[in-house]
């Protein structure tokens, strides 16, 4: 268990300490980082499903200029680990994940603030033209900051997190139902946020098209994606013809 806990701690560390986006770019998202946690915990199937459930409220997750609406990295890695050790079901995991992610915004802010120190350190090496130490400042200190801020909590959750399952089990039924119910509502946040980004007036009807295709015809998301791509292509072809006529 200690080895698994250390591996989960490393995943949680690297979900925030992005040593290279060639690898870590997708670790921001619970669906991948949580799946990795599932693998090292020896429960890839359960981990994958919990991770996907935790990811739902974060489908509209956008970071810009270092500001974050919620710490999806922490929710994904630590949330999945917690779900696995304490036996949470998927909707409750969504709720617990969002609570973790909301609280852990503080962790992200601390990480982003502390890292300023290393930039000042690097300034001194830059003035001397010491390229090696600039590289050192970029990679090494921030790893330890993330290890303390993300890795240690993740380690403790794997070792001691089973307690949370006991707490939940000890709660009255209405609390358990309430938590599960919140988990069913939360995905509306992700969808709503995306609608906010993508929903220009001209193309807004396509949201309703997707909605009612799924609601009335019961089409899967994959099928709807394919129809969407075809529609987009048709519109592109017609647009081309119009341009030709105009020219």
């Amino acid at each position: 268990m200690v080895v698994r806990a250390i591996l989960v701690a490393l995943i949680a560390t690297c979900s925030t300490w992005w040593f290279s986006h060639v690898i870590t770019r997708t670790w921001l998202y619970p669906i991948w980082s949580g799946f990795l946690v599932g693998i090292v915990m020896g429960k890839p199937m359960e981990g994958m499903m919990l991770a996907a459930a935790i990811n739902l409220p974060y489908v509209g997750f956008i970071t810009a200029g270092g500001s974050m609406p919620g710490n999806a990295m922490f929710a994904g890695s630590v949330g999945t680990a917690l779900g696995l050790v304490s036996g949470l079901d998927m909707t409750t995991a969504t709720t617990i994940g969002v609570i973790l992610g909301s609280v852990a915004v503080m962790i992200w802010n601390a990480y982003m603030s502390i890292n300023s120190i290393w930039v000042h350190m690097a300034d001194k090496f830059a003035a001397k033209g010491n390229l090696k130490m600039i590289r050192f400042c970029n990679y090494v200190p921030s790893f330890f900051v993330s290890l303390i801020l993300n890795g240690v909590p993740a380690f403790l959750i794997v070792m001691k997190g089973a307690v949370v399952g006991d707490w939940l089990a000890a709660c009255p039924q209405w609390v358990i139902d309430g938590f599960a119910m919140v988990g069913g509502i939360l995905p509306a946040l992700g969808v709503g946020m995306l609608l906010n980004f993508l929903g220009q007036k001209k193309i807004l009807p396509f949201f309703f098209l997707g909605f009612f295709l799924a609601q009335f015809l019961g089409l899967s998301t994959m099928a709807i994606t394919i129809f969407g791509a075809i529609i987009a292509f048709i519109i592109y072809l017609f647009g081309k013809d119009k341009e030709k006529e105009a020219a």
Partner: peptide, 19 residues
């Protein structure tokens, strides 16, 4: 804009499947 059309249809179906 064209790809956004696909995006909007996907999130429309997510509203049905995931909430």
């Amino acid at each position: 804009e064209l790809v956004s059309i696909v995006g909007l249809m996907v999130i429309g179906s997510m509203a049905v499947n995931n909430i």
